[in-house]
């Protein structure tokens, strides 16, 4: 089993204004062990061996969710990457939001 907390550095602007480029965040890797991902959570997922940080905007019943960047006009997300499997999600980003 993985460690509960993982340190992640954000690269890119697609989660602005919530998360700025270069910011360090903590990811709770145990957040979705007993609970399903929830809409509005910011999560980190793995795709093609790379990590991405996006917001969950829809949770589907077939084990997938849609994830979009907060900076929607400038984000590479589910619109190009497709739906994200629950088991590709590494964990929930611990980000304080206003």
């Amino acid at each position: 089993m993985s460690w509960p907390i993982k340190l992640i550095k954000i690269k890119g602007h697609s989660m602005q204004p919530t998360i700025q480029d270069g910011r360090l965040i903590l990811v709770n890797q145990w957040a979705y062990i007993f609970k399903k991902p929830r809409i509005r959570d910011i999560a980190v997922f793995r795709k093609d061996n790379k990590l991405f940080c996006k917001r969950i905007t829809a949770v589907h019943t077939d084990g997938y969710c849609t994830m979009l960047g907060d900076n929607e006009s400038d984000s590479l997300d589910s619109r190009e990457l497709g739906k994200i499997r629950f088991d590709s999600i590494l964990g929930k980003a611990c980000v304080k939001e206003r």
Partner: peptide, 14 residues
């Protein structure tokens, strides 16, 4: 390795 941050992409344009 345990504590150095891994990069997560918040990609913009393709």
């Amino acid at each position: 390795r345990r504590f150095s941050p891994e990069i997560a992409y918040a990609h913009c344009d393709i």
